[in-house]
Computed example of a mutant assay.
Amino acid sequence: MARPLIADVDLDALRHNYALARELAGGSRALAVIKADAYGHGAVACAGALEALPAGRRPPAFAVACLEEAEALREGGIVTPIVLLEGIFEAQELARVEALGLWMAVHSDWQVEALLAYRPARPIPVWLKVDSGMHRLGFPPDQVAAVWERLSAAPAHATGLLLMSHFATADARDSAYFDRQLACMQALAHRLGASLCLANSPATLAWPQAHGSWVRPGVMLYGSDPLEQPSEASRRLEPVMTLRSEIIAVRELAVGEPVGYAGRWRASRPSRIAVVACGYGDGYDRHAADGTPVLVAGRRTAIAGKVSMDMLTVDVTDIPEAGIGSEVVLWGRSRHGAVLSVDEVARHCDTISYTLLTGILPRVPRHYSQRT
């Protein structure tokens, strides 16, 4: 019998979440961000499920972080345009960008120089990255017009020019900094007559004024709510990954008995402790606190004791039917119908859903399901 830990990936839920992004985007085009192996879900499988949608409902483009991620998609049979969100990392990559038919962000002077020195058979679609306030990648606003003019004057090298930027606080209720970034980008777009790609997942969900010509939903596609406060729209998201395992042992503990390394958790009553096949060696967060929620046989309970490399322990005192082989859901949808949000689990780990989803390691098999 194989170890029972698996990551179930519901491709119908992925399609539902993408359809929600398209609905919210209105007249904007919605690319699908599938970087970091589709946030841990499997980029080729997820891209394939979205690419198989009927014309008019499928993504007009995918987005990844780097050339290697794009190459994996092409090798997996994906033909949809792919945007390199960080562009190239060295000039020699331009030949592969051209050969694979990729689009690319340009955020630095050296990238501009490399592109203008290259002689593509067909111009490469370019998205010009602006640092509107995130202060990671992008040209300062006062340099954008000059770069835009250089690229516009080189139609044999660059085509499809638009402006892109990234919001630092679109997930927050306080919109002051968001408003400042948006105003900066709208002013540049008006000055240059440029299209815009600004809206990440939280802006797609909550800030329609930022949708521009393109939105680029990422973590929302996988069912995670990126907003500080859930909205009517974000409550419609469906979990895509269910991290599912089983109980492999049960222990009876007397009052005062400890569990796990350092005895962090001690029984305050006669307790039943279940051992679950999942640990930080699988990517489950070692920082999960006592009380981190878990579903056992469809009922809520909690982690008791420190997470080990291959196992964790949960309190099943109040779930008398729980025993060896009982289903354990670390996040996602139980076969009994209950749902545990990855966002709730992340809060107990003092992190965000992105780290949990992308942290699931290759030794955890991905099982894909779809009805269509």
Rank of each mutant, 00 (worst) to 15 (best):
residue 2 A to K: 14
residue 3 R to N: 11
residue 10 D to Q: 06
residue 11 L to I: 14
residue 13 A to D: 03
residue 14 L to P: 04
residue 17 N to K: 13
residue 19 A to Q: 08
residue 26 G to M: 13
residue 27 G to E: 15
residue 28 S to H: 14
residue 30 A to H: 15
residue 31 L to H: 11
residue 34 I to A: 07
residue 35 K to G: 14
residue 36 A to C: 04
residue 39 Y to E: 01
residue 40 G to S: 12
residue 45 A to F: 13
residue 52 A to Q: 08
residue 54 P to R: 08
residue 55 A to G: 08
residue 63 A to T: 15
residue 68 E to S: 15
residue 70 A to G: 08
residue 80 T to K: 09
residue 84 L to V: 11
residue 93 E to Y: 07
residue 98 E to C: 04
residue 99 A to F: 06
residue 104 M to G: 05
residue 110 W to H: 05
residue 112 V to T: 07
residue 113 E to H: 07
residue 113 E to A: 08
residue 115 L to F: 03
residue 118 Y to S: 08
residue 124 I to P: 03
residue 129 K to E: 06
residue 131 D to F: 04
residue 136 R to H: 04
residue 138 G to V: 05
residue 146 A to R: 10
residue 146 A to S: 09
residue 148 W to S: 10
residue 153 A to S: 09
residue 154 A to G: 05
residue 155 P to A: 12
residue 155 P to L: 13
residue 164 M to T: 13
residue 164 M to P: 10
residue 170 A to N: 00
residue 181 Q to I: 12
residue 197 C to A: 14
residue 197 C to M: 11
residue 200 N to E: 13
residue 201 S to A: 05
residue 201 S to I: 10
residue 202 P to C: 02
residue 209 Q to V: 14
residue 212 G to Y: 00
residue 216 R to M: 15
residue 221 L to S: 02
residue 226 P to A: 00
residue 227 L to A: 03
residue 227 L to G: 07
residue 231 S to Y: 10
residue 233 A to M: 04
residue 236 R to H: 12
residue 237 L to H: 06
residue 237 L to T: 05
residue 245 S to M: 05
residue 249 A to D: 08
residue 250 V to F: 00
residue 259 V to F: 03
residue 269 R to L: 10
residue 271 S to W: 00
residue 271 S to K: 00
residue 288 A to D: 03
residue 290 D to K: 00
residue 291 G to C: 10
residue 292 T to A: 12
residue 295 L to A: 01
residue 306 K to W: 06
residue 310 D to V: 10
residue 318 D to V: 00
residue 319 I to Q: 00
residue 320 P to Y: 09
residue 322 A to I: 06
residue 322 A to C: 05
residue 323 G to V: 00
residue 337 G to H: 08
residue 338 A to N: 00
residue 341 S to T: 04
residue 342 V to Y: 01
residue 345 V to P: 00
residue 345 V to L: 01
residue 348 H to E: 10
residue 351 T to D: 03
residue 353 S to H: 02
residue 354 Y to W: 11
residue 357 L to Q: 12
residue 359 G to A: 14
residue 360 I to Q: 02
residue 368 Y to Q: 12
residue 368 Y to G: 14
residue 368 Y to H: 15
residue 369 S to H: 15
residue 370 Q to K: 15
